[in-house]
Design a protein around this nucleic acid. Structure first.
Length: 143
RNA sequence: CAGCCGGACCGGACGGUCGCUUCCGCCCCUUCGGGCGGUGGGAGAGGAAAGUCCGAACUCCGCAGAGCAGUGUGCCGGAUAACGUCCGGGAGGGCGCCCCGUCCUUGCAUUUUUUGCAAGCUCGGGGAUGACUCGACGGAAAGUGCCACAGAAAACAUACCGCCUCGUGCCGCAAGGCCGCGGUAAGGGUGAAAAGGUGCGGUAAGGGCGCACCGCCGCCGCAGUAAUGCGGCGGGCAGGGCAAACCCCACACGGAGCAAGACCAAAUAGGGAGGGAGUCCCGGCUUCGGCCGGGACACGUGCUGGCUCGGCGCGUCCCACCUCCGGGUAGGUCGCUAGAGCUUCGCAGUAAUGCGUGGCCCAGAGGAAUGACCGUCCUGCCGGAUCACUCCGGCAGACAGAAUUCGGCUUACAGGUCCGGCUGCUAA
């Protein structure tokens, strides 16, 4: 279990990614409360082809907390569950890309159901990079 | 073997890597509550989990009065915790078969026409039968309403054509025709439906006018737990359809639902109860300020299923002030899964099902776990190669996701398995 994980720095290379790509996603790093969702909706947004990502800096802790919203308009229970599960799996594999404390809400579009999983991984990874960049830049520029 | 119909069942299989929820063991931390710490092991969507259409369990609402309104059910018996479900039975409709009458066509016989026979066919009636099939199957001799078009007439029925009697009627040599008063529901025609059907008699022509059989109504007897069936006797016969139109009859129904409900309980805000006294009357006390008890009225307010009535409660201007007590929200815990549970065998029963016995533990989430990726195989389709067996490549594998839990119903569904029946073909 050791050999793969500590790759540490390096930039956005290695899209192929090692096979049994690690990463955990326990419940403590999920966004579960209504109030949290409401707060994040008032924050910043990032748009990508198959989803909209809301995010807002948090005061304590570290790393991202992620929640998903899949409305009734996106399909039946089976389709909505599938979207959430694919997203959760993608986030699990890519959330190390972001280390700042931040709350994230991902709102998928219907097309997410049919995209390749590798494409989804790439998209989620890019979103985390963008969040990391914006939130580390900003404090310097402002003060 | 193929096709069709009916019923039952399955709902891709195996493996790998990385995750999620939950339970158990051990370790670690602990403010001893626990831990959204580690590690090992176990479990983790469906036949419909769906629609939320019925029935229950469970929970709460002061065990819930009367009338009206409302909703549901509707042949009989049984099963069941219960049901609108299931099983069995009874009547009825459909389909197939037979018989009778009838319309038309064809052929044959006879022949001036007529008529008869046979086959097919139209319509109507009757009969027996089925591992077949259908279903809101109480009531239309309580009332109201509706019945398009067609038709003379569509409901205390109707006279268009036709048929028939009659007439000091008219025309005509006559046969007959026309006109008129009537009779008539056999025939034609309309329609989904036209005052039971068929036959014989009777009649001016007709008609339950009379008779026989069938149908209908009533009574009696027998069989059956009953629906009902069979038989006898009597009555010439009441009467269109629609009750999934209102309605009538019988029976049943209190309401809301696990976001039920119980407990713990932040931040913020400040809530409730009592006193601080509506009006009038009566009684008592009085330091003459009032106080206490009872009653009436008024107003406000809560509960009583929707309305009305009725009933049961509570309160009495405002503000300051005094005394006492918490309640609710976010969040958390419980409810929350061992149950009308699943299953083996035996017994009872036609069956639904019940009883006995042995075995089993089978999801419990809560912005909502049950996943992602890969490999091998399976099934189907397409393309290519091959004489062929077969091989290679690609695509597809439905409907659909537990949310308190059960029993049903309904709807959706790729592909497949088994059983039974019918038809066709081949073999025996």
């Amino acid at each position: 279990m050791s050999a793969i994980a500590p790759k540490g720095d390096t930039n956005s290379s290695a899209p192929g990614a090692p096979k049994g790509n690690g990463g955990r996603f326990p419940r403590s790093t999920r966004l579960l409360r209504h109030a949290d969702f409401e707060r994040v909706y008032r924050g910043r947004r990032h748009f990508s082809p198959h989803m909209t990502v809301f995010y807002l800096r948090r005061d304590q802790g570290e790393g991202p907390r992620v929640g998903f919203t899949v409305g009734r308009a996106l399909g039946g229970a089976v389709e909505r569950n599938r979207m959430k599960r694919r997203l959760r799996e993608a986030v699990r594999q890519r959330r190390q890309a972001c280390s700042v404390p931040v709350d994230v809400v991902i709102n998928p579009k219907k097309s997410l159901l049919t995209t390749e999983f590798s494409q989804l991984l790439e998209e989620v990874g890019r979103a985390f990079q963008v969040i990391q960049q914006k939130l580390t830049e900003k404090p310097r520029g402002q003060g």
